[in-house]
Amino acid sequence: MTTSAVILFPGLNRDRDMIAALTKISGKAPAVVWHTETALPEADLYVIPGGFSYGDYLRAGAIAARSPVMDALRGKAAAGSRILGVCNGFQILTEAGLLPGALMRNAGLNFVCREVLLEVVNAETMFTRGYAQGQILRCPVAHHDGNYFADAKTLAGIEDNGQVAFRYASGTNPNGSVNDIAGIVSQQGNVLGMMPHPENLIEPAHGGMDGRALFEAALERLEKNAA
């Protein structure tokens, strides 16, 4: 059975949805780790959910990224463990230097809460292998600071390395992200950060299941569920 762990910071608010998704898809409730911990339990997938850690004071994710637990997460990232950051989790991973670039205030200045379309740009990552290359997914977003930015050199690097996992498709870019980037993986491919919320489209009651294959891939449930 695959195991997962959710890291909690004060001010996150999407943790319950994430815990429900991980529990339903892996068959086992994730370990929940408070930000003051200095060690992480063994798990197949570590997740930082969305919300507004520390009220987004200073910059979205900035304070959380300097929490004690992040050194342990850095160790897990270096060792090749799978790490997923959604929304504020993505912001925290970029602030912590685990993913390149930064997430800035939405270009339209408004908080956006709506459904967007995502193109699977790289279907060969350990998170996206349950999708087809170029597949278009529905996915909700809800954020104020999702405007992905990286300097030209960094951007060229992540594009050339296949690190762009998801792009906003069909003109649905809600925040001005450069190159319509919605989600990226680390150079080694074991860390994924994305602004949209796949945990909110995993069962029929959600009105769609487009997010489910991401968790099935990350939790190594693809084959089992297909069988």
């Binding site: 910059r59 900035a62 970029t94 670039g101 930064a102």
Partner: peptide, 9 residues
Amino acid sequence: EKLLANTVI
């Protein structure tokens, strides 16, 4: 370098 600025941006 460590907190007050995000030197990426």
